[in-house]
Design a protein around this nucleic acid. Structure first.
Length: 505
RNA sequence: GCCUCAUUAGCUCAGUUGGUUAGAGCGACGGACUGUUAAUCCGCAGGUCCCUGGUUCGAGUCCAGGAUGGGGCGCCA
């Protein structure tokens, strides 16, 4: 049995492939089956003259996603996806199935999410899952190469480590326990034992967020390093992200092509990232400070004008097609083609109209940004819109950041947190910082956040016994994948997303 | 929790100021076609217009409430 991804080593030879009928077309004496076996896609040609009438009729009857075994000769053909096709000499049907729910056309998101267990078989989803795998592998590669020790933080925790977010409550032998929202505090403990560690595990947030970048269950990678300060931390974030993106580009060119990902922005990660203090970032967001001669407000107003122009253009395109169809004399195929184009344009218009509604709000919120606030999603979009490489913002007002972040010794109003914002509107994919080592300040902060002190006694021990400067960060796996693949929503980056309103399948 | 947009055939969508028996394409099914890659042709089947109530001679269309979903805000990775 051969794998589709290895066909190049079998050209001219007879192979056996086992897989599923991904697509099928037929003519009088030929059936074209696009077979997928999990490693790739390959066209198999079943010729009436080679397999006989009885078998040929079976081939004709195959429904989409039927499982089959085919045997035949590998022929190189540049026209084909993957570059090879199989001239079938014989085949067996494992199961011939009918009425596969996902048709060969565009579907809506809701329908596809209901069919997620089947949707994973389609080409785009296949490509995304392969990228996900490559990202995960690249992350491990990087940290293992750099001498980090992987650790698993507990999923059940007795307390909220940041206090502010909603947690999923469970019953742990009669006492309330929460699903973890971060393994970081445990990571700090482990870093004091191992030097450099990273966690890689699921994380849960019960935020009722209905946005393109939120999941209730997602995977987070949290390195923690002893003897690192905020600047060492930023150096590591930059090196880490650069390495992961480069490795994924190297390993998944085919997948990124299926996703029609323009890799320009990914290649840009080879260049130095932008580092801004919160103060500078705020000045840019408000439009008080220019970047390359431009203010955010100009850029956004341009975007808005462009969006409006695009909508107008699409609308006139629809009108033209509609009147062309109404005029008559068009072949049925042409009519279909135009109707499809109209549908597609209408969908694009819907999305653009959302932007049209949102951009003025963003503009407004950017203009009126109050110093001292945390960035909202729109502020991130506005800021990153100004650059084409990732942006790291550090030294935040300590009130808006987590209790465990170290204060800037030169300005106690600032905490040494750092957020990394991905380009192309993807916003925050990394959040981290240097940790507070001053026990007294930590205790004050725990009170300030109204967290239960007794839950943190072990954490405070870390400051009592061999306390050292240390830092770390958390990376949202799904957000990183969404950006690398340039997907509109994180829900496509995880096999079975758990989000507000979605527990099935 | 708030704002906003949507819900019509298996799927994607039309449906005019409220007016007879609600349409198209795709898919499915039946047939035609020697190489296709969602663009060939003929035929056929397919509907609780999200739910409840209201206005009206008459509601897919208007109003109110609700449900579900998309997106945004808040919050975050």
């Amino acid at each position: 049995m051969a794998a589709i991804q290895d066909l190049s080593t079998h050209v001219g030879k007879e192979v056996e492939l086992k897989g599923w009928v991904h697509n099928k077309r037929e003519s009088k004496t030929l059936v074209f089956v696009i077979l997928r076996d999990g490693t790739g896609f390959c066209q198999c040609i079943i010729d009436l003259n080679n397999v006989g009438e009885e078998n040929f009729n079976v081939a004709t009857s195959l429904g989409l996603e039927s499982s089959i075994v085919v045997r035949g000769k590998v022929v190189a053909d540049e026209r084909q996806v993957g570059g090879y096709e199989i001239h079938v000499t014989s085949f067996d049907v494992i199961q011939n199935c009918a009425d596969y729910p996902i048709a060969k056309k565009e579907h809506g998101v809701d329908f596809l999410m209901d069919q997620r267990h089947l949707w994973l078989r389609s080409k785009r989803q296949w490509a995304i899952m392969r990228v996900r795998n490559a990202v995960i592998y690249a992350i491990h590669n990087f940290f293992q190469r750099e001498g980090f020790v992987q650790m698993d933080a507990p999923v059940f925790t007795g307390n909220a480590c940041e206090g502010t977010t909603d947690l999923f409550e469970t019953d742990f032998y009669g006492q309330p326990a929460y699903l973890t929202q971060s393994g970081q505090l445990y990571g700090e403990a482990m870093a004091m034992a191992m030097g450099k560690i990273y966690t890689f595990g699921p994380t849960f947030r019960a935020e009722k967020s209905k946005t393109r970048r939120h999941l209730s269950e997602f995977w987070m990678i949290e390195p923690e390093m002893a003897f690192y300060d905020i600047f060492d931390n930023m150096d590591l974030i930059e090196k880490f992200l650069r390495s992961v993106v480069a490795e994924v580009m190297e390993k998944c060119p085919e997948e990124l092509e299926i996703l029609e990902r323009d890799t320009t922005a990914l290649k840009k990660t080879a260049e130095p990232f932008i580092r801004l203090t919160y103060d500078d970032a705020v000045a840019i967001i408000r439009g008080e400070k220019e970047v390359n001669g431009k203010r955010t407000i100009d850029v956004l107003e341009d975007d808005l004008a462009q969006t409006k122009a695009q909508i107008a253009e699409l609308k006139s395109d629809i009108e033209q097609r509609e009147s062309a169809i109404a005029a008559g004399g068009m072949k049925k195929g042409q009519v279909n083609f135009n109707l499809n184009a109209i549908d597609k344009n209408k969908n694009t218009i819907k999305q653009l109209e959302e932007d049209e509604r949102n951009i003025p709000q963003w503009l407004d919120s950017a203009r009126n940004f109050t110093y001292g606030n945390d960035f909202g999603g729109s502020d991130e979009t506005v800021l990153t819109r100004m650059f084409d490489v990732p942006v790291m913002v550090y030294d935040w007002p300590h009130q808006v950041k987590a209790f465990y972040l170290k204060r800037n010794p030169d300005n106690l109003n600032l905490a040494r947190g750092v957020d990394l914002l991905a380009p192309e509107g993807y916003g925050e994919i990394v959040g981290g910082g240097e940790r507070e080592t001053n026990e007294q300040l930590l205790i004050e902060k725990i009170h300030e956040h109204e967290l239960p002190m007794e839950a943190f006694d072990w954490y405070l021990d870390l400051r009592r016994f061999g306390s050292v400067p240390h830092a770390g960060f958390g990376l949202g796996l799904e957000r990183l994948i969404a950006w690398i693949c340039k997907l509109p929503h994180v829900r496509e980056t995880i096999p079975f997303p758990r989000m507000y309103g979605r527990l099935k399948p």
